[in-house]
């Protein structure tokens, strides 16, 4: 773990690393360093992209992208360090103008995750050719997984206008 940490620190500038509990390594990197770090890690054997997630830090007006990278490494491999790591690579992008570069050229399975984040958080992944609707049926003014999208209000606004069938019957009667 420490070996990898050192190598990361020496190869990239401006990153902060921290060890979460057990065998988790958290790395915060500036925007530009993310893709180089990911390809660096892939070359070191961390070739399994588990998840791309996003957290909406509304108070700080930033979106945080989280890449979870793990490996298929066996115990005795060089960088496995007798423990298999999860690496949580985090970076922040602005909330108003959520643009980021796609990861598809490095990890093919980033595509559906980026599609999902595009849909639910409104992040535009430059270079991903298939940012088509995935889960949702219609377009929303605010991407629905952002913190300022209030589901209850939305439901009220959307469905309270529609009256119940029974009520109509009563009116006629």
């Amino acid at each position: 773990m420490n070996k990898l940490k050192k190598e990361l620190k020496s190869s990239f500038k401006g990153i902060r690393t921290g060890i979460l509990e057990d065998n988790r390594l958290a790395v915060s990197a500036p925007k530009d360093a993310v893709l180089p770090i990911l390809s660096f890690l892939k070359n070191k054997g961390y070739e399994h992209l588990s998840l791309i997630s996003c957290v909406d830090w509304i108070e700080e007006k930033e979106l945080e992208l989280v890449y979870v990278i793990t490996s298929y490494l066996q115990k005795n491999d060089e960088y496995a360090d007798n423990e298999r790591l999860h690496i949580l690579l985090k970076t922040r992008i602005s909330r108003e103008n959520p643009e980021f570069k796609t990861l598809v050229p490095i990890f093919k399975n980033a595509e559906p995750y980026e599609r999902e984040l595009h849909e639910l958080f409104g992040i535009n992944f430059e270079g991903n050719k298939r940012l088509t609707p995935l889960l949702l049926e219609r377009a929303y003014k605010i991407p629905p997984f952002r913190k300022d999208f209030n589901t209850r209000e939305y439901v009220k606004e959307k469905f309270d206008k529609i009256s119940f069938v029974e009520e109509k019957k009563n009116e006629r009667a």
Binding site: L20, E21, R24, A26, S50, L51, S53, V55, V66, V68, T70, H86, L88
Partner: peptide, 19 residues
């Protein structure tokens, strides 16, 4: 805090990222 945990479900890696 934040964490990512995973288990082997009957279909593969089931993970949960929680903040």
């Amino acid at each position: 805090g934040e964490t990512y945990v995973r288990v082997e479900s009957s279909r593969g890696e089931l993970g949960l990222y929680m903040v």
